[in-house]
Amino acid sequence: MRFTGKVWRYGDNVDTDVIIPARYLNTADMKELALHAMEDIDPTFAGKVKEGDMIVAGKNFGCGSSREHAPGALKAAGVACVVAESFARIFYRNAINIGLPLIELGEGDINIKAGDMLAVDLAAGQAENLASGEKFAIPALPGFIQDIAQAGGLVPYTQQLLAKKK
């Protein structure tokens, strides 16, 4: 799967309360939540994000609450993938479980700026910053986490597992 999108750039410790504030969690309708995605850190995001855009951030992206509404709102807003130095573990799990691709690059400077165009090829395990020409490898997901991602998330994966058992 290869896709190209514009980068939204954020810093370290972007928490799930700013990705989707709890005041909106009286619904689990992800399309509705997408209208408020990133609102408390970037009020322009929800109005301007386009299908296929990507978020690039620093370390510990998605820390805090276990609300799956966070990756859910980003996915529903059209975000194609999130690239970060590192992810908080519940966010990481949740994103894989709902089929939102994540790219964890390891800690260090990421030379990607807001507005850069990024081309990502998940199958080939490679990404390219079209603005700078810089290429970087996407670390492969380990073991059956790969299978979950390939099935499109944990629900289809579990459906397949239960079907096999029958």
Binding site: R93, L154, T158
Partner: peptide, 14 residues
């Protein structure tokens, strides 16, 4: 440990 709703859903089933 904490998980998300999808993990909870699948865990309730399996």
């Amino acid at each position: 440990t904490g998980v998300g709703s999808t993990d909870m859903a699948c865990a309730m089933a399996t």
